[in-house]
Computed example of a mutant assay.
Amino acid sequence: MTVRLGQLMHVYPDQYEEYERRHNNLFPEMRQALKEAGAHNYSIFLDKNTGNLFAYLEVDNIEKYNQISNSEACKKWWAHMDSIMDTNQDQSPVTFDLKEVFHLD
């Protein structure tokens, strides 16, 4: 069963272009880790007025996907992104999970 996820994050206002550049050059090992974790239809949208990011992705298995945070690829990516966005002490992005309230198939 596919699970749809929505999350909010925040990038620093002077780092919009850098954030996009880094994602356009996603580390191959991170791309592979996402695919192995069953992530697909992954998009991130930026509100240039606030620096808020909206991430949407679909995963095949939420438990399997959640294990990605233990991977070396993910930890390397977090370290790479730490200086341009709001992050936690472990360098993971500060995220707010959103509750799906409507879906049109």
Rank of each mutant, 00 (worst) to 15 (best):
D90C: 04
L104V: 12
E58V: 02
N70Q: 13
S43V: 15
L8V: 11
H23F: 03
V101C: 09
T95F: 03
Q15G: 01
Q32F: 13
T95P: 05
E63T: 14
R21E: 14
Y65V: 00
T50L: 05
N49E: 15
P28I: 08
F54V: 09
Y56E: 00
M30E: 05
M85W: 06
V3P: 00
D86Q: 03
D82V: 08
L98Q: 11
N88P: 06
D82P: 04
E72W: 11
E18A: 05
K48I: 03
W78Y: 12
N49C: 13
N24H: 14
D90E: 03
L53G: 00
I62S: 01
K64G: 05
N49W: 04
D14E: 14
K76V: 08
A79F: 07
T95K: 12
L46A: 00
H23Y: 10
S83W: 13
A39W: 07
L8A: 08
F27V: 12
N49Y: 13
P93H: 10
F102Q: 14
S43D: 07
M85A: 04
W77M: 06
L98M: 14
N24Q: 12
K99I: 10
V94G: 10
P93W: 04
K35P: 09
N66M: 01
E100P: 03
E17I: 08
G6V: 06
T87W: 09
N70M: 07
M1R: 02
C74M: 13
T95N: 14
Q7Y: 02
S83G: 09
W78I: 00
Y16C: 05
Y56P: 00
V11H: 03
K76L: 09
Q32T: 15
P28M: 09
K48D: 00
S43H: 06
M30N: 06
N88V: 00
W78K: 01
V101M: 15
L98R: 12
E36H: 12
R4K: 11
Q15V: 04
K35F: 08
M85C: 04
N41E: 04
M9H: 06
Y42L: 00
E29Q: 08
H23T: 01
I84T: 03
K64D: 07
M85I: 07
L57C: 03
N49T: 15
R22P: 01
S43F: 07
I44T: 02
H40A: 00
R21A: 14
S83H: 15
I68M: 04
F102N: 10
D86E: 14
K64P: 10
M1T: 03
M81T: 02
S83P: 11
T50N: 04
